[in-house]
Amino acid sequence: MSVHAYGAYAGDKPLEPMEITRRAPGPHDVQIDIAYCGICHSDLHQVRAEWAGTHFPCVPGHEIVGQVSAVGAHVKGFRIGDRVGVGCIVDSCQHCEECDAGMENYCDGMVGTYNFPTADAPGWTLGGYSRQIVVHERYVLRVGHPEAQLAAVAPLLCAGITTYSPLKHWGAGPGKKVGIVGIGGLGHMGIKLAHAMGAHVVAFTTSESKREAALALGADEVVVSRDTEDMAAHTQSLDLIVNTVAAPHDLDAFLVLLKRDGAMVLVGAPATPHPSPGVFSLITRRRTLAGSMIGGIPETQEMLDFCAEHGIVADIELIRADEINAAYERMLKGEVKYRFVIDNATLAS
């Protein structure tokens, strides 16, 4: 079936309206009328071919929320009218160790929501900047938030799980001091989630102007990372750091803030590598430098349920489809608090 979408035909071309084809729902498929789709920084990297391997036409978008409009004959967990979400994963091998553990995000056969090989036309997945999507029921998530919050739920499907997963895995909670580096689309969610988990939250920013905003999000302390005295005052004080910055920077400046056996987890994906950290920052306190990538389907559902229980959504700016290109430019300049979300009803009637 033909569906209205927004995408690009080349890396140096702006996004524009287009028609794409979606498969008819199979026995285990869920068809979703997309209400809103968040804009992730990775959308920009991929659609502009700043990351290798972009297929065109490229329709980005992996922060999808909407309503079930059809289900396959063998689908048991979803009904027409259910509020649902789709994140970064729409398929995986379903039989490897990672899939069996509910960590499809680490499956070698993981299929991302856009720009990954698929049997569907045109041969690669097309994402959520569209009116509709068809997804196997295994990768569809329930949304327990009220209807009025649906647009602000969309970024939870990437920014939310990307920060929730390392916070949960490395044990953020009461009695723990957790640093969140960067106060953007990912970082603002990290602050909210770590605060809700009961941790003492220290937010790190390069800008003094973000201090009040970080405190309002739930940070207990705010450190301007360009202030060497302020940074030094936090040496060996943190149990965990979740570093959300998607630009190369000095990791040693943050590693030394960790206690013995503390960990810094990288979740931001810069286009070029970080400078290598000094080995002594790690070995002198048995510190860990780690990485984390989104989350598996069960953990993503857990995150959505946690956020619904605690009333957590993203801080968003809702935009029309014809504002996407301008939003990309504003995102590059950091001119959004903290996530753009597309009203997919504006793609076309």
Rank of each mutant, 00 (worst) to 15 (best):
M231T: 07
G218F: 12
R285L: 11
I297D: 02
K337S: 12
D305Y: 08
A213F: 13
S207G: 09
V267C: 06
E229I: 15
M303L: 09
H28Y: 08
L289T: 11
K168G: 05
S42T: 15
E63F: 04
D239P: 01
L217K: 06
V135Y: 02
M293K: 13
M189G: 06
T21W: 06
A213S: 12
H200V: 08
G175P: 04
N115W: 06
P248F: 15
H274M: 10
A8I: 04
I297E: 02
V267N: 01
G77T: 14
I133H: 00
L141P: 00
M189P: 00
V134E: 02
F254L: 13
G112V: 04
G127Q: 03
T228K: 12
T346L: 09
E208G: 11
A232Q: 09
R138K: 14
H274N: 13
V313M: 04
S209K: 13
V84F: 10
H188G: 05
F340A: 04
Q236A: 15
M103W: 02
T346S: 15
G61H: 05
Q67I: 14
I283V: 14
P117A: 14
P117D: 09
K337G: 06
G185Q: 03
I191A: 06
L238H: 04
A348M: 05
G187M: 05
N105K: 09
L304F: 09
A345C: 07
V47P: 01
L156T: 02
D120E: 15
P57Y: 14
A148Y: 04
A52W: 02
M18L: 14
A70C: 11
G87E: 10
P248Y: 13
I283L: 11
M197L: 13
V256C: 11
W51Y: 11
A253P: 00
D82N: 12
D29W: 00
G109Q: 05
V3N: 01
D322H: 12
E19M: 13
A194S: 13
G7A: 10
D33L: 06
A194T: 04
V245P: 02
L156Q: 02
G7M: 05
E137L: 09
W124M: 02
V71F: 02
P60M: 12
V242A: 04
Q31C: 14
G173Q: 10
E302R: 11
V265N: 01
G7Q: 04
I183L: 14
Q94I: 03
V341Y: 01
I297V: 15
G66D: 05
L332C: 12
P273W: 10
Y139H: 08
L186M: 08
